[in-house]
Nucleic acid binder design. Structure first.
Length: 455
DNA sequence: ATAGGGTTAG
């Protein structure tokens, strides 16, 4: 039978093929269907676009709209929502905005789904201002923000360092008759934790308890990670064991706990939970692999760590800045500085731009192996530095009695708006004093005082 | 369509 009902069957088929990424099969099924006079419709093409966006690329997904035009099928709001989601996946904020404009030009009215995806894309790619503009334009487009919109906005504000604004918004939402959900609470609690506003985080956690909403795994992982972040390890492990009795653990929580155990030198338990994570058959993503690589490195099994990296790549997962930083740090700590340098070059070749931590590891390694000259050269060539970069250098210079040089670096750090760790301050000032460099001490203290805002 | 996990200094 030919017609609408056969197209429905075709669509179910194409949908499942696209979802698992079997696009070539999807294409042949469509060709066969057309031969049997079962014509694809907008739903068929939307599934195809989703598949191409998720498994190949945004351009390939976008190209499908041309095929739709050839077949005289008009794209709908879902077509564009899918494409904007593609732009979000590859962090292409300008493409997302272009797609949104294209949608308007074609007189397809965006819905809240379009806005939510666009907003999330803009926030995740660091386009805070654009995101706020888009949000305020919703009203004039007659689209009312829904709870997902507000949750997206809250999260975007939190991750862009606008936690106070997020909190204000949260309080405003609480006062409306709008009923908030667990996502809202998880988002604001996490935002507050990550900004160090722990009293407020605890306050809202208590409020959550009174709402009748059930805390979920994400709530627990947020709280657990907050404990570890602020070095309340025992409290964190306590929460973990109470949850593990109820078997309420997933791979996110395993990663957090394993990493905290490693930092406490508790390798036996870390290995035990790593085995558990593998046995439960969770999907092993980048973060899971990185945690295991970290465990092997710190546990002195570099060979196994490298095997894991191969396995990771074999499974189609790319090494990221975490993987490299873990490897580089371990290589340095084992004294293989040349190998570390090679990994760093490899990392740059792969275009991993967020490599500040990796550089810091190398600098620390160079300093500790006595190659301070080289370390200084590397530091001077870095476009982005932070308090860790300078801490390694300053401590190492002081250890070698070069207090005035250390002080010079401390001052350039302050000039760059980067604070100096108290431990580093202390060691420089004590050294300068001991050698009688009173004027240098005063100069540094003044610089520190003038930069109080950094602390 | 929205929320949680993984790397560096002393």
């Amino acid at each position: 039978m030919v017609g609408k009902s056969s197209t429905k069957i075709l669509n179910v088929c194409i949908h499942s093929l696209c979802k698992i990424g079997n696009l070539s099969k999807a294409e042949t099924v469509i060709v066969d269907a057309i031969r049997l006079k079962c014509l694809p419709d907008v739903v068929t093409y939307n599934s195809l676009i989703s598949g191409y966006c998720n498994f190949i690329g945004l351009d390939e997904g976008h190209a499908i709209t041309q095929r739709m035009a050839d077949a005289a099928i008009k794209p709908d709001v879902i077509t564009y929502n899918t494409l904007i989601a593609g732009a979000r996946k590859y962090c292409l904020p300008l493409r997302a905005l272009d797609l949104f404009d294209e949608m308007l030009q074609r007189r397809i009215s965006p819905d809240s789904w379009s806005y939510n995806t666009l907003l999330d894309c803009l926030f995740k790619c660091g386009y805070l201002e654009e995101a706020c503009k888009v949000f305020s334009s919703m009203e004039s487009m007659n689209v009312s923000p829904c709870l997902v919109t507000y949750n997206t906005l809250l999260n975007g504000l939190c991750t862009s360092g606008k936690v106070i604004d997020a909190l204000k918004l949260f309080r405003k939402l609480q006062q409306t008759c709008f009923s908030l959900d667990i996502v809202t609470y998880n988002t604001i609690i996490d935002g507050l934790c990550k900004s160090g506003m722990l009293t407020l985080a605890r306050e809202i956690l208590n409020e959550l308890g009174k709402t009748g909403l059930d805390p979920n795994m994400i709530t627990y992982t947020t709280v657990l990670s907050c404990c570890f972040r602020y070095k309340k390890y025992d409290r964190g492990f306590e929460i973990f064991s109470s949850l593990s009795e109820k078997r309420q653990i997933d791979n996110f929580m395993y990663c957090a706990v394993i990493s905290a155990l490693i930092k406490n030198g508790r390798f036996e338990e870390a290995n035990f939970y790593a085995q558990s994570m593998l046995q439960y058959g969770f999907e092993m993503d980048q973060a899971c692999y990185n945690t295991l690589v970290y465990l092997c490195c710190k546990d002195g099994r570099l060979e196994v760590a490298l095997q894991l990296v191969d396995e990771m790549e074999g499974n189609g997962l790319k090494c990221d800045s975490y993987t490299f930083s873990i490897l580089i740090d371990s290589l340095c700590k084992m004294g293989f500085l040349d190998a570390a340098q090679i990994q760093l070059n490899l990392m740059e070749m792969k275009g991993l731009s967020a490599n500040l931590v990796a550089y810091n590891c190398l600098i620390d390694g160079l300093c500790k192996s006595g190659a301070i000259e080289k370390a200084m050269k590397v530091v001077n060539g870095m476009r982005k530095k932070d308090t860790f970069t300078y801490a390694s250098l300053i401590h190492s210079l002081c250890k070698n009695g070069k207090y005035r040089l250390a002080s010079k670096f401390a001052q350039s750090s302050l000039r760059e708006g980067i604070n100096i760790l108290p431990s580093a301050q202390r060691v420089v000032i004590l050294g300068l004093r001991r050698l009688g460099y009173k004027r240098d001490v005063k100069k540094l203290l003044d610089a520190i005082n003038n930069n109080r805002h950094l602390y």
